[in-house]
Amino acid sequence: MNRIIIDVYVLQTVPPSNLNRDDTGSPKTAVYGGVRRARVSSQAWKRAVRLAFAELLDSSVLGERTKRVGESLAARIRTLDPSLSNEDASALAAEVFAASGLAKAEKKKGEAKDVESGYLLFLSHRQLDNIAAAALESKRAGTALDKKRFKELANTEHSVDIAMFGRMVADMADINVDAACQVAHAISVHAVDNEFDYFTAVDDRKKDAAETGAGMIGTIEFNSSTLYRYATVNVNALHETLGDAAATRAAVEAFLIAFARSVPTGKQNTFAHRTLPDAVVVRVRDTQPINMVGAFESAIQETESAGRVKLAAAALTDHVLAVESAYGERPVGSWVTQVGEQTAVLTDLGKAVTLGELVTGVGEQIASALGQPA
């Protein structure tokens, strides 16, 4: 099977917003090309994609990342054997994770307590179900679920989100999963200066006209930007982890939809910032992933005749064609979903299609490459 790399390039404009905050509550930024840019971390957007998966894929092919592993496993044990009390299910779950070495069994006032791992533990729903079933089987046989068996169950039937974004287990490195997907930090194509919104809130029970002033005052920091976003998926690595061509295609299709339509939710009630991309460009390659961020090393400066989106679309088109020409890169497939005349130049990179047609086209190409019927 030839190498299959999917590169996704997105231009997206967001209004005044604070999608992703730093430790002081300010919108994250980065210096690139000598100027400060708005930035949304890859972690923030991957989280948004994972949440979007829940609406696109069945729960059975997804996972959960939590420290509250005992609570999750105990619930599954109780589902399989309702005759067990909550305390007995929690005790059994604690024994399992204690045997695995990932959490310590604890007791509080003589009663079993749902154990927690020392860090976020990422397990697929199927893995948790299988571990719960094995725990009950061991209990009935009067034996204990050992670490070796736990590792076997935790290292098979990986979920789509684990396969996409990887898993690191510090205390059990041999069940780590390499991520098939890499997501870049989104940055604005232009320079930004964060601004402050000074706000006041009035006390609804303040009726006396003589009692003036606000119930509270404060400030919220924000910026607005046209973002360049990039992600890449190694289909071969994804297929190796999932072990099934149909599942691999479904995972990629779900990712494309989720990456295009998801937005981090930081301060969304304050700013209602949810937008859809101005353009989505997908290039399928058989060589290596290529981030085209160099198109914006020189910050975009809008003019009277052209705004940031139009100039950004032109810069991205020119840079993609220049890089691919210089290095002899010939994508094996290309699709463009774009909105309006501002991004029409991007059709030089591929035929303009709807997002649905783009997703179907990529899916069919993956099916063909993996030897599956389209």
Rank of each mutant, 00 (worst) to 15 (best):
I4A: 02
D7A: 08
V14S: 00
P15Y: 05
P15I: 12
R21E: 03
D23L: 00
T24M: 06
S26H: 09
P27L: 03
V31W: 02
V35G: 01
R37V: 00
Q43M: 04
A44Y: 03
A44D: 04
R50L: 14
A52V: 01
L56T: 08
L57H: 03
D58L: 07
R65G: 06
T66R: 05
E71A: 08
A74N: 08
R78I: 09
S83Y: 15
S85H: 14
A94V: 09
E106I: 13
K108A: 00
K108I: 00
E111K: 15
K113L: 09
D114S: 13
V115L: 07
L120C: 07
F122T: 11
R126F: 02
R126I: 07
L128H: 04
D129L: 13
N130A: 08
A134V: 10
L136W: 06
G142R: 08
G142C: 09
A144H: 02
K147H: 13
H158R: 13
S159H: 11
D161T: 03
G166A: 08
M168C: 13
V169L: 13
A170Y: 05
D171K: 15
M172Y: 03
A173Q: 12
I175P: 07
N176V: 05
V177C: 09
V183G: 05
A184Q: 09
A184F: 11
S188F: 01
V189E: 02
V192Y: 01
V192D: 01
D197A: 10
D197I: 12
D197F: 07
F199W: 09
F199K: 06
V202Y: 10
D204I: 11
D204E: 12
K206S: 08
A210H: 10
T219Y: 07
I220W: 00
S225W: 03
Y230D: 02
T232V: 06
V233Y: 03
N234T: 05
L238P: 01
L238K: 04
D244E: 14
A247W: 07
R249G: 05
V252L: 11
V252S: 04
A258P: 00
A260T: 11
P264S: 03
K267T: 00
K267G: 00
N269P: 08
T275S: 10
D278I: 04
V282P: 00
D286P: 09
A295Q: 11
F296Y: 14
T303F: 09
R308C: 02
K310N: 04
L316P: 06
L316Y: 06
A322L: 14
A322K: 15
V323K: 01
V323F: 11
R330A: 15
G333Y: 05
G333V: 14
T337F: 15
Q338R: 07
Q338L: 15
Q338I: 10
G340I: 10
Q342A: 15
T343N: 02
L346Q: 07
L346R: 06
L346I: 12
T347G: 13
L349N: 11
G350V: 12
A352P: 12
V353P: 10
V353T: 13
L355K: 04
G356C: 05
V362L: 11
G363W: 04
Q365C: 08
